[in-house]
């Protein structure tokens, strides 16, 4: 049982594991179908509407012809970048095509807004159901409380951040400050905001709950926030995967599949 004083503990309950993998699948498809939808209008604006006779764009991606050669420009907050080859004009079958993203970044790989929307809304329901299931189960079985930072956790936060930066990763029975904080932010803030900004883009939902337009500052701002939150989720996922690899992928994956986790001796923390 004990190996260097470690022991297997049952750390992840069934609802946590099931919803974790449901989110993984849903977010993967939501990302790639969302980028497909974004391709139909690769611009982001601030406000209620899109400026055509005025400029309220914060991001614009597009191809243009420079003489006989195609180039791509990405304009972010008024700063222009040449993104030929990877944003706005991408290589497809050896030719430069006027397309926002390469085909491996979208579902389907070719331009198809209708399918992108069908896929996006299917997995959006999946995300909503998984989040609801997790919330109900975690409130019932006490898992939600494990994500709440105690006074001590807040005091230990700077230390925990430093430890992570030095890659001194612990394998405790419970989450430490940074883990609690990041999971709590994703589950209680980022994912609900993702759903709410998505709904705020719906003219039907706007008629049903007009206050969300005021909350986010207009439909186009909601769309921009939806995109920003996507970047947050992509960033979170990248760090999350890196941490799993650094902390020992076998142990981490086992805990998220079977629930059993090899923890360091309790005395360490």
């Amino acid at each position: 049982m004990a190996r260097n004083g470690t022991e297997l503990v049952y750390r992840q309950r069934l609802p946590t594991r099931v919803t974790h993998w449901a989110w993984a699948v849903c977010l993967f498809f939501l990302l790639l179908s969302g980028l497909q939808i974004f391709m139909a209008r690769p611009d982001l604006y601030i406000g209620q509407q899109s400026g055509f006779a005025f400029d309220n764009a914060v991001l614009s991606i597009g191809a243009f012809m420079d003489g006989a050669t195609m180039k791509a420009r990405t304009v972010l907050f008024g700063h222009s970048f040449d993104t030929t080859g990877w944003l706005g004009a991408v290589w497809e079958d050896g030719d430069l095509q006027p397309k926002t993203f390469p085909s491996w970044l979208t579902i389907p790989g070719y331009r198809d807004l209708a399918t992108g929307r069908v896929v996006h809304f299917f997995f959006a329901w999946g995300l909503v159901f998984a989040l609801a299931l997790w919330l109900v189960a975690s409130l019932a079985n006490g898992h939600a409380r494990e994500l709440v930072l105690s006074r001590g956790d807040w005091r230990g936060l700077p230390r925990d951040v430093l430890d992570h930066l030095r890659l001194r990763l612990s394998h405790g029975r419970r989450y430490r400050s940074l883990q609690k904080l990041s999971y709590a932010l994703i589950l209680f803030l980022v994912l609900p905001l993702m759903i709410l900004t998505g709904l705020t883009m719906s003219p039907g939902f706007n008629a049903f709950m007009p206050w969300t337009l005021d909350l986010f500052g207009g439909r186009q701002t909601a769309r921009t926030l939806h995109f920003l939150l996507m970047l947050v989720l992509v960033g979170f996922t990248a760090v999350h995967l890196a941490m799993v690899l650094l902390a020992g992928p076998f142990n981490e994956l086992r805990s998220m599949i079977t629930g059993w986790y090899r923890a360091d001796p309790e005395s360490e923390r």
């Binding site: 209008r41 209620q48 509407q49 807004l113 929307r117 003219p203």
Partner: peptide, 12 residues
């Protein structure tokens, strides 16, 4: 009113 295109843009 605000016209919302399926492409993603809006115009009032």
């Amino acid at each position: 009113t605000r016209h919302d295109c399926v492409e993603g843009w809006s115009c009032i």
